[in-house]
Computed example of a mutant assay.
Amino acid sequence: MSANNQPLIPVTILTGFLGSGKTTLLNRILKENHGLKIAVIENEFGEEGVDNDLLMQNEQENIVEMNNGCLCCTVRGDLVRILGDMAARRKKGEIHFDQVVIETTGMADPGPVAQTFFVDDLVAESYILDAVITVVDAKHGMQQLDEHREIQQQVGFADRILLSKIDLCEPGEVDALKKRLAKMNARAEQMESNFGVAPIAKLLNVRGFNLNSILDIVPDFLDEDKHSHNDEIQSFVFKQTKPFDGAKFEEFMGSVTQVYGADMLRYKGILYIKGSDRRALFQGVHMLMGLDWGRKWEPKEKKESKVVFIGRKLPKDFITQGLELCLAR
């Protein structure tokens, strides 16, 4: 809950490389009668933007209501300012929306946009970051991953990966791409989309950034791909049935983020802490990390820590060995 006891507005960041199909998806979200009042913010407006007939063009930011109740806003200035303005107008009853989708440009790193919801107090009073959705062109994804660092970062940040243009691919192409993406980001659920048709219920209100969400990691994926890709972005999972010393864990991870934070895109997990009957929920973006207490361990539940790290050329052995030293003696 926010300071004024109003429910926080969930925000989805929609990212993807140029031509991946995210604008097609965005147009579908705007036009579809899904019963949701969605405010769509285009973080930079260009030729590839939302259908021109849906928008009134002028020099300033504009907020336009669609015929299905959705809003569309183009941002040429400060994202924090426009989010604050929209929240204030919503509070006064001038506009109404239930959630926000922010579309980033095709070459953008979604990290700074995601961090906005952690570091700006005024934004945090009204909004909660729900998830990062990354659209990947299934036909050209392999080549784009080889050639562009930006798409690797977009994959690394994702809570959901939406594969577009499946209809143009051979089955083997899609399978190979899925395995590669899973190796880069072990915790993002992958879904398929054609012509903007996507399971919207699985993309919005998924609480991918919520510390109380279920952590679903499938580390088996990491061992399946025998093809070697020299991807900068990779993920690894740390698992341990022995409990952590909570103070040692926080001290170690604090030092790790100070040194490697710029290359740590996402890290998230459930911790078994000595002396507590509750699961500790841990996550971070770059240098910003948080630890919160979740539900109690069930009587028959296996107590274990499970943390996934996603980043750029992270020192896996150093982090793994350091975490082992943080276990309770």
Rank of each mutant, 00 (worst) to 15 (best):
N43M: 12
E44I: 05
E44F: 04
F45P: 02
F45Y: 11
G46T: 08
E47L: 08
E47H: 01
E48F: 10
E48G: 10
V50D: 06
V50A: 13
D51L: 13
D51N: 09
N52E: 14
N52A: 14
N52P: 04
D53L: 09
D53P: 02
D53Y: 11
D53R: 15
L55V: 13
L55H: 01
L55P: 02
M56C: 09
Q57A: 07
Q57S: 10
N58D: 04
E59T: 09
Q60C: 01
Q60R: 13
E61C: 14
E61V: 07
I63N: 02
M66A: 13
N68K: 14
N68W: 06
C70I: 00
C72F: 03
C72I: 08
C73P: 09
C73A: 05
T74C: 05
T74D: 07
V75T: 11
V75D: 13
R76D: 13
R76E: 06
R76P: 10
R76N: 14
G77E: 04
L79G: 06
R81H: 10
I82D: 15
I82F: 03
G84W: 00
M86N: 00
A87P: 03
A87E: 01
A87Y: 01
A88T: 03
R89M: 08
R90I: 05
K91N: 05
K91F: 09
K91Y: 14
K92T: 11
G93K: 07
I95A: 11
H96P: 01
H96Y: 08
F97V: 01
F97G: 07
D98T: 09
Q99M: 15
I102M: 08
I102C: 05
I102D: 03
E103G: 10
T104H: 02
T104F: 10
M107P: 06
D109W: 00
P110Y: 06
G111S: 14
P112M: 07
V113N: 04
A114L: 01
A114F: 04
Q115H: 09
F117Y: 11
F117D: 10
V119M: 11
D120Y: 15
D120E: 15
D120F: 13
D121N: 12
D121T: 10
D121H: 07
L122S: 12
V123D: 00
V123H: 06
V123Y: 00
A124N: 05
E125S: 06
S126L: 10
S126F: 13
Y127W: 03
I128S: 09
D130A: 10
D130S: 06
A131M: 07
A131S: 15
A131V: 06
A131E: 12
V132D: 04
V132Q: 01
I133C: 13
I133W: 12
T134H: 12
T134W: 13
V136Y: 01
V136S: 11
V136A: 14
D137K: 05
A138D: 04
A138C: 14
K139C: 08
K139G: 04
M142C: 12
Q144G: 06
H148N: 13
H148A: 14
R149N: 10
E150Y: 08
E150N: 11
I151E: 06
I151V: 15
Q153L: 15
Q154G: 02
